[in-house]
Design a protein around this nucleic acid. Structure first.
Lengths: 334, 334
DNA sequence: CTGAAAGCGCTTACAG
DNA sequence: CTGAAAGCGCTTACAG
């Protein structure tokens, strides 16, 4: 059985392939009779246009790539789920498809940076951009439009969307201060992360605005792991008894903190209050439930996808740095 | 600036496009001198092969589609994350890419079932197959190979991988019986789900093997939501005080059950033991931590992807129904 | 070892 | 309203 192509349909009806193509795309008027015959032939023959051929001829793929985290992180990260859901919903609405790439680059070798480009995409969404991100270099080199999810310190990157993390941390620290806390630690991420810096600034400003001394020693830079939070809070407890509250980089670190506190039977929030960032499902499930900064991941994903499509379709040329509102959700841990 | 194609490179070097193509693919021997010149020209010109053109000419896409749940479910489902991670890792190893489709079909209208096929894929992975799944119909019609993640009652579906849920529930119920429970309820999913039936069989067999009466009234068919578990357990408590344990369809329902028990200050597992299925992160985080049946989602994803690629590459023609081992993880709730 | 040429299956000015 | 034809950028028998 030979493959049925647009030519097969055309011959069956007795018209040219061009006419069939126009009938399908609706880009030209086709007489009703011919149109009807074509539709019938398509049905009878079970004709399916070849998307690859169409893409090649029209130079358009209706596909967007999402550069995500390593799969190890994806496995236990609801933040990813929400961003993904936002991206998917927007793409669906705009009739685009999603290619999902996990991050397999090792820190040392550059692996095969070309690999992810083995499919044609019209644009890309980049999560967790690194400082000198090889994916971004590739994207630039190929002239593929892209939008960053997160903030870049590189001003040549014209499009990104992020949540207003600084404002979120400001609110979180203000909240703790209003509860009477005076010595608040920030369990931050790695110092060279833009995300860490944004947190630090909000934290610092809240202290200053409240007339509380800002002390760099109260900021710890941790790996984004439960264990890191676990050991860090125990250290603080041992070395600085005046500390009565911590704000963490994310929910995962907070989980470790709370685990340590529970095991050592330290009252939360009585002796130690805890505020996290992320507001993923676990902050609600956990007992005590965790006060957390919501960073609107779904909205970020949706916005980023929208912006990207605007760029792809040339509806937008101006640089755009969107910050979505972050807000504090108060729960039992503070 | 004109687009640089294989022809540009060929002209620069003074050979034919065919030679460049062969040099790139390595499918024919090319003299070292010519090869070197070609490599140089490629670098100088910044040539990137068009994947679309390559796909069209070679009729191969190196891409697999994953038909997932609606985004509403994806947002709070770690089970999905783990399956996804398994799929991605295997595809990466085999040099395939992933197109991710969320499920936007409404229950009533068939939406646009063609939409997801607007990109070329070599094969598909189908999660949560429905009884008469329109995606599967499409796949069949187009002759695209596919593998089901989950079990189908339709024997014409030749490939699927799932966990041995029946054995898992058998173990879970045996475990509860060994703890002295005699009246155990099964908070199951919808009765017309294959997955529910598999659970019921394991549950039933464990009771029978232990000489405990199997009572259909002890099986409730619920929606897969927290609220469903919440109200169900309260009903049971009110109507059948002899019940001292429940096994749930998944972690989400268990969450609702435990919420109800906590709010009514009912001791877990003292008055009521709880066992869930899924063993996602929340079972560990929750307090009390939740005994749960691990269904190896990562392994399922990885196996399914492997199987699919074997089918795509014609290394496998025989039907294959793989069942991975499910095992019970005992925690505080039982 | 290298090349001329057909072919993959569409789209889209252009002409009528 | 319809068609002939070029073009999208590759791959791959086939011939030499």
């Amino acid at each position: 059985m030979k493959k049925v192509t647009i030519e097969t349909v055309a011959q069956r009806v007795g018209v040219s392939a061009a006419t069939v193509s126009y009938a399908l795309s609706g880009k030209k008027k086709i007489s009703p009779e011919v149109k009807a015959k074509i539709d019938e032939a398509i049905k009878e023959l079970g004709y399916r246009p070849s998307i690859t051929a169409r893409n090649l001829a029209s130079n358009k793929n209706w596909t967007v790539g999402l550069f995500a985290s390593p799969t190890g992180n994806i496995r236990e990260d609801f933040f990813f789920n929400n961003i993904l859901a936002g991206v998917l919903d927007t793409l669906h609405e705009k009739k685009y498809q999603l290619m999902l790439y996990a991050d397999y680059r090792s820190d040392t070798e550059q692996d095969n940076p070309d690999f992810n480009f083995s499919q044609p995409i019209d644009g890309a969404l980049v999560m967790n951009p690194r400082v000198n991100d090889s994916n971004i270099d590739q994207l630039k080199e190929r002239g593929i439009p892209y939008v960053l999810i997160g903030t870049s310190e590189d001003l040549s990157i014209s499009y990104f969307v992020d949540s207003d993390i600084t404002a979120g941390y400001y609110a979180a620290v203000k909240h703790l201060i209003s509860k009477g806390h005076k010595k608040i630690y920030l369990l931050n991420g790695r110092a060279d992360y833009t995300q860490s810096e944004k947190r630090r600034i909000g934290y610092r400003q809240a202290l200053i605005d409240s007339g509380i001394e800002y002390d760099e020693n109260c900021i710890l830079n941790l790996a984004m792991l439960e264990e890191a939070g676990y050991t860090a809070v125990l250290e603080i407890l041992a070395e600085d008894p005046e500390c009565t509250a911590v704000v963490t980089f994310n929910d995962t670190i907070a989980l470790g903190v709370l685990k340590a506190l529970r095991e050592h039977q330290i009252a939360v929030p009585g002796r130690m209050a805890v505020v996290s960032a992320g507001n993923t499902m676990i902050t609600r499930i956990h007992s005590p439930s965790i006060t957390s900064i919501d960073m609107a991941p779904y909205a970020i994903g949706a916005k980023a996808a929208e912006l990207l499509i605007d760029v792809i379709e040339k509806r937008r040329m101006q640089p755009s740095h969107e910050l979505l509102q972050a807000f504090l959700v108060e729960r039992e841990s503070s």
